[in-house]
Amino acid sequence: MKMEVLLLILLFRMSLQLQCDKTEITAHVGGEFILACQYDSSRYLYSKKYWCRGDSRNTCQILVHSEEIKRNTQRSHIIERIGRRALFVRVTNLRLDDADVYWVGIDKIYADIMTSVKVVITEVPVSKPALWPLSSLEDRPTCDGKPVTVRCGCAKGTGVQYAWYQAHTHREPFLLHSSSDLYLHCRTVEKKSDYYCVASNDMSSLESDVLSVQVLLSAGDSCIYVVNIQGQPFYDCMDRMSTTTVTAPPVTSCQAPTEFHPESHNQSLLTNDTQTHLIFSRSWTGVPFWYMLLRWGALIFLTMFLCIVVKCTKQRHKNMSRRRR
């Protein structure tokens, strides 16, 4: 019993001689941490201080100490501020395997003064993944049926894993493959599909914006399709549609035929309404029909008015001639 009490008293006195601001540190991969400790400079100002790794104070491995400055060029550093009676331990470029129990120690005859700290290392949470094509969409390669590769990537995150999904309206999303790249080609795209990427690690998981693919013409390796990515230039392939020879009805408006350019219900209604009222909104020359009617009506009215004036003038001259006679 007396031995236990003496041990507790000894540990208490040691804690007063060396105190650190943390007993547990949580940091992420690639980051760093700084541990600040105060000690009794009146007794241990010139004693060796060290940073030690291991579960036991008796068997831990010294990584760096104050008397061997050249070892401070590694990831672990000991910095003394004599005027402030302070000792700082700094560890940089952290890795997952740095998680462990560490000790700050002061060399002392018979028994070193030591205090422990637990270090926990976590992954960096992922940021929202961005999508970008590896070839420029402004060149409209899809209008000629060429393949396009879209890449998914995060600005932040460690140990990130990527997966591509195809979205469905009435059922669960379908996992395409676990990769950062999505390869689009005539043989792989459907008539209208939405895709998105998921970036994840042990800390978090986030989805990208939706990537939309719309097939305008299904013709094997010579198909025509459009890829829409938020933040990328908008383009279409309508001029390509109008010059492509296929066994299908000709394109008569800015919307593609239903056979090879399926749209949503609202877009179909808009197309039909445009075709139905085409004759009422514009003439064959491109001038509004109502303007043509107004112009021809004014011309006819002016002509009739002039005819009436001329006729009345002639009749008046005849009446005046008769009166003179």
Rank of each mutant, 00 (worst) to 15 (best):
C143A: 06
V148M: 06
C186F: 04
H168V: 05
C154K: 03
T158S: 15
C154T: 15
Y165E: 02
C143S: 05
S179W: 09
P129C: 02
A155I: 06
C143K: 06
C154H: 03
L184N: 07
A167K: 14
H185Q: 15
S135I: 15
H168I: 04
A155W: 00
P129D: 05
L175E: 01
Y183I: 13
A163E: 10
Q161K: 12
T149G: 04
R151S: 15
L182I: 05
S136D: 13
W164I: 01
S136W: 01
R140I: 11
S178K: 15
Q161V: 11
A155Q: 10
H170V: 07
H185C: 14
P141M: 05
Q166L: 11
D139L: 11
G145M: 05
P133V: 05
H177R: 13
E138G: 00
L176M: 12
K128T: 13
R151T: 14
G153L: 08
A167M: 10
G159W: 01
H185G: 15
G145R: 06
S180K: 10
T149W: 00
Y165M: 05
R151F: 06
L131T: 04
K128H: 08
E138T: 14
L137F: 03
C152N: 02
Y162V: 00
P133K: 06
E172P: 03
A155G: 08
V148R: 03
K128E: 12
G153Y: 09
V150S: 07
S136F: 06
Y162T: 01
P129Y: 03
E172M: 11
A163W: 01
G157N: 07
L175K: 08
K128M: 09
W164N: 02
P133M: 05
A167D: 11
H170C: 07
R171Y: 07
S180H: 08
Y165A: 02
A167N: 10
T169R: 14
T158V: 07
R171A: 12
P141E: 05
A155Y: 02
G153K: 07
H177Y: 09
Y183A: 11
S179F: 10
S178L: 02
L176T: 01
S178I: 03
L176V: 13
S180G: 02
T149L: 07
H170L: 13
P141C: 06
E172L: 12
G157R: 06
P147E: 08
R187E: 14
L134W: 01
H177K: 14
R187F: 08
F174D: 10
C186Y: 05
L175D: 01
L131F: 03
K146Y: 09
R140H: 05
F174K: 14
L182T: 02
P141I: 06
W132C: 05
Y183K: 11
R187I: 06
S179K: 10
D139T: 14
P133I: 04
T169W: 09
C143P: 05
T149A: 12
Q161I: 07
W132E: 11
G157E: 06
A163P: 03
R140K: 15
G159A: 09
W132N: 10
R187N: 13
V150Y: 04
K156S: 11
L131S: 03
V160M: 02
D139G: 00
G153N: 10
D144Y: 10
S180Q: 09
L176K: 09
A130R: 11
C154Y: 02
